[in-house]
């Protein structure tokens, strides 16, 4: 195929862009810059790990149904795994967010990495919220009763009805996890493509600035 034709193809454009920006060596490197040496760097991967436990326990729950955990002790344990992994997911994500803020990790054309991370945070709150609505217990009754006013007040309730169990369970297990999954994937690929942000003072000498 001549180079001209290849140039116009979407497929070859995608392949070349991918190879240029995210070659396998960048996706799965075996070294990191020397400054990647702090416990704070573990909170991103810890958040992903918690998400993994959430998805795994959630899958088991989805096979057994929303009421399973009320009467089965195994079900209660799996539900507890889901519950505590969500707590840790948010704990790790918040610490990760604090860490990245104080690193000003959006420097060096990493704005989109920050944006996808923040979107993942906001989206996770929505996903967790729908989870609380489908516990099929007193808590979910009350949360749906209270939360309806918030969503109704700005018209969201006309399409997103928190008291509709069927809608909430479908969104919680289908739409929202897919959204979170895609945002997380983009976030992680961006981190790999752009590399870990260098220290704020890393280039001061090079730029001839006095400290």
């Amino acid at each position: 195929m001549s180079a001209d034709i290849e140039k116009e193809m979407w497929t070859s454009k995608l392949r070349k862009g991918w190879q240029k920006n995210l070659p396998i060596e960048k996706l799965l490197p075996d070294t990191q810059p020397a400054y990647v040496a702090s416990w704070i760097y573990l909170f991103g991967v810890a958040t992903l790990a918690a998400l993994g436990v959430i998805v795994a326990s959630g899958l088991v729950l989805s096979f057994e149904g929303a009421s399973w955990y009320h009467y089965s002790s195994v079900g209660h344990f799996v539900n507890s795994m889901h519950f505590w992994s969500v707590q840790f997911f948010f704990i790790f994500m918040v610490v990760h967010l604090w860490g990245k803020f104080w690193m000003a990790a959006w420097r060096g054309r990493r704005l989109l990495t920050w944006i996808t991370g923040a979107l993942a945070f906001v989206g996770s709150i929505a996903t967790a919220f729908t989870g609380y609505l489908i516990q099929t217990n007193f808590d979910s009754q009350w949360i749906s009763y209270e939360a309806k006013d918030g969503f109704n007040s700005v018209g969201i309730g006309s399409r997103f009805n928190v008291t509709n169990f069927g809608q909430m369970i479908l969104l919680h297990v289908a739409f929202l996890p897919v959204i979170i999954g895609v945002i997380t994937l983009i976030h992680v690929l961006l981190v790999r493509a752009k590399g870990v942000v260098p220290p704020i003072d890393a280039f001061n000498n090079e730029l001839g600035e006095r400290k």
Binding site: L28, P29, D30, T31, Q32, P33, A34, V36, A37, L42, V45, A46, L48, A49, A50, G52, V53, M81, W84, S85, F88, R107, G108, R109, R110, K194, G195, V196, V197, P198, A202, F203, E206, L207
Partner: peptide, 30 residues
Amino acid sequence: LESAPWSGRVRRYDLIKEGVAAVVIVAIVV
């Protein structure tokens, strides 16, 4: 400078091992 690929010192870092360890530890704690 901040967006260019890092050209300074590097250290060994096993991302996959780190990820697996994180999942195992988090699963145990949970």
